[in-house]
Computed example of a mutant assay.
Amino acid sequence: MTMAVEKATETPSAVIDRISLVLDSFDGPGRLTLAQIVRRTGLPRSSAHRMLERLVALRWLRREGRDYELGMRLVELGSLALHQDRIHRAAIPLLRDLHRATGLVVHLAVLDGSDVVYLEKIGDHLATAIPTRVGGRQPAHCTAVGKAILADRDNTAVDLSDRRTRFSIASTAQLVAELAKVRAHGVAFEREESLPGFGCVAAPIGPAGEAVAAVSVCGPMNRMAFDSRLVAPVRMTAMGIWRSAEGGPERVAPTLQPLRPLRGGPAPRVIGPNPATLQPA
């Protein structure tokens, strides 16, 4: 009788909310048991079990024994969402150029609430040292990509209590000062604020004052150049992505002077003309 009443009174929006609650419980590594999902969602055990089995049948989840994990249908939909995203589609060739030019890990990210969500990550052996992933989140104020976008947003609430290292921004005054620098120079820096030993340089993507995404290069601090050697190619890549997304014909290749290589590693390649010959955009 209770089950019949529950089904009769449950609205479609309530069902969607419950499904979202269940899927959100998988935000993290590893599989989950029914008991863990009930504990994380607060749903009645019988309701959670019915919903899980239906999601397994629809391939949104996958079950092995008593454990559940995200299913292939979500992988398919996530991949399709990226494919349909015009910024991501426009960015891919330019992100590859930027990685080849710098030898550093390249990220494409958007702002979601007070976090950044990564849409793309391109890198070689360095990529494994930086614990970011496509679809992963980081507090925006701890990242260069986040600060690049936040500088264009006036009313975004930021939880400064979520710090990743001792170098992370810790006060409103510090954040305001940092974002003012980003607006003044059109580029954001991160120095060990999200990961000890690593830094990033990022630029916003979008019309002036209305950033929709950001692109960055990241690597070990002894390989980072917080000057025109990285600022120029990152900014040019950001401009090229936006022009391509808007349907412009130009494809802007990143330009880079040689950087001091990692100890024992090859020097990064130089792609494009000499930065000294570039005119300001």
Rank of each mutant, 00 (worst) to 15 (best):
A225K: 01
P207M: 06
C142V: 10
L70D: 06
A180M: 03
G28F: 09
A140N: 06
G247F: 09
R54V: 12
V5N: 15
A211Y: 02
A203V: 04
A91I: 00
R73S: 02
A57N: 08
V110N: 07
T277K: 11
R164V: 08
L32A: 13
T102Y: 01
P196F: 08
A157V: 14
F189I: 08
P268W: 14
D85P: 01
S79C: 11
D24C: 12
I92V: 15
V217S: 03
V22H: 12
T11L: 12
K147F: 07
H107Y: 14
T132L: 15
I122K: 03
L175Q: 05
V176Y: 02
G264P: 13
R243N: 06
R50G: 05
T277Q: 07
H49T: 04
G206Q: 01
A90S: 03
G199P: 12
A184P: 00
S171F: 11
M3L: 10
A129L: 14
L230W: 03
R89T: 07
S13L: 11
H185S: 11
R50H: 10
S228K: 03
E69A: 12
V134D: 08
R18D: 14
P12K: 02
P93G: 02
S171H: 14
A8T: 14
A245S: 04
E120F: 07
V117L: 13
G78K: 04
D97S: 05
D115N: 10
V176T: 11
D112F: 08
V5E: 15
R191N: 12
T132D: 11
Q84W: 04
G42A: 10
S161K: 13
A213Y: 02
L74I: 11
H185V: 00
S171C: 08
L179H: 01
L119P: 04
A214L: 05
A170Q: 07
V158M: 05
T41W: 13
I241P: 00
D112R: 15
E246W: 04
V22S: 08
D67F: 03
L256C: 11
T128D: 13
K181D: 10
S114Q: 13
P273F: 06
Q257N: 09
D162M: 15
G264Q: 09
R183Q: 04
I271E: 08
A57Q: 14
R166L: 14
E250D: 11
V145W: 04
I16M: 15
G65E: 04
G135A: 07
E69Y: 02
P131G: 15
A173N: 12
R89Q: 09
A238I: 00
F167L: 12
S228R: 06
M239Q: 15
G136D: 07
A203N: 02
M3F: 08
V231A: 06
A245H: 02
R133Q: 13
L160Y: 11
Q174P: 13
T172W: 07
D85A: 00
E53H: 09
A81K: 13
F226P: 04
C142D: 06
S13H: 06
R243A: 09
D85E: 07
V145I: 09
L259H: 02
A129P: 00
A245C: 03
A144N: 09
L82A: 05
F167P: 00
R86V: 02
E10A: 15
Q257E: 13
L77Q: 14
S216W: 06
A245K: 01
A208L: 12
A90Y: 00
K147I: 07
T41R: 08
P93C: 02
I19E: 14
M51D: 09
I87P: 00
F167N: 14
I87F: 03
D115K: 05
R137Q: 09
L108N: 03
A238L: 02
